[in-house]
Amino acid sequence: MTTKTITPAAAPAAAPAPGRGNRKQARRNTLIGWTFILPNFLGFLAFTLIPVLAAFALSFMEWTSFSAPKWVGLANFQRMLASDSFWVALRNTVVYAIGHVPLTMALALLLAMLLNRKLKGIGFFRVAIFFPYITSLVAVAVVWNMLFSPDNGPINQFLHAIGIANAPGWTSSSDWALPAVIITSVWRDMGYYMVLYLAGLQAIPSELYEAAEVDGASAWQRFWNVTIPSLRPTTFFVVVMLTVSSFKVFDLIVVMTNGGPGRSTTVLSQLIYQEGIGEGKFGYSSAISLVLFLIVLTVTVLQFKIQQRRER
């Protein structure tokens, strides 16, 4: 299923045009088709498609809430590359992705392996682990902020109990705020990716395992030589989704740390918001938007390429 979601046009509609070749019929069909699409398309055109195209154009313009738009070529990008806050935000976003992607992936796979068995009541466990993913973000951020309280928070109490004397200051420390955000987001997201892995695991034919067992493969060997290769399409999809979502991280940061302390957790999305909506620098913020889009696009294309080479 995973590959299918990526290539949605795999099965083109074969609606037989009634009265083929009949021009009047064709015109009628066009009219009918458009009436179906129009209610959604008007909203989509005005509030998604045009803003997307505008974002591209704006990044080459100087436009603030106090001045008229003016074409400036690459000036916004030059300013961005010279700006310290851009590099800080980019670095934080990359660090977040480096922490978030592998941890979520590993835990999601582990949970899926544990939960991929026929036991009574297994559904309860799956639902419980999935639930954080759809819990409101503000509630999640608020609870974790309290769990991370540097003084008497449960997490630091636990760390003291297992003998760690200098427990970190988490969201109040500029070194530990980003790890705290990463831990929270891993907890929140792993249930979703577990569901994807579970689907992947259940699609592996049991004959493969039986054959490996007959050949005398140990549980570990079966994992490395049957499970992991069979899961490759799922893993590919999970990595793409996780990486893209990591680079887009926004609301969790805004609610949990609001970029602080200092600039230690400011990410690209937040910089776009601050510059564009906060300070009204429409052109400059669009240049940062374009960079965010290009990063997301590059990551996706790169991973597609890697996947293709592996399959060959």
């Binding site: 803003p51 997307v52 974002a55 887009k248 999305s269 938007s289 889009f293």
Partner: peptide, 9 residues
């Protein structure tokens, strides 16, 4: 396209 990229327009 990430939603954040066109929130300003």
């Amino acid at each position: 396209v990430p939603w954040q990229a066109y929130m300003v327009p």
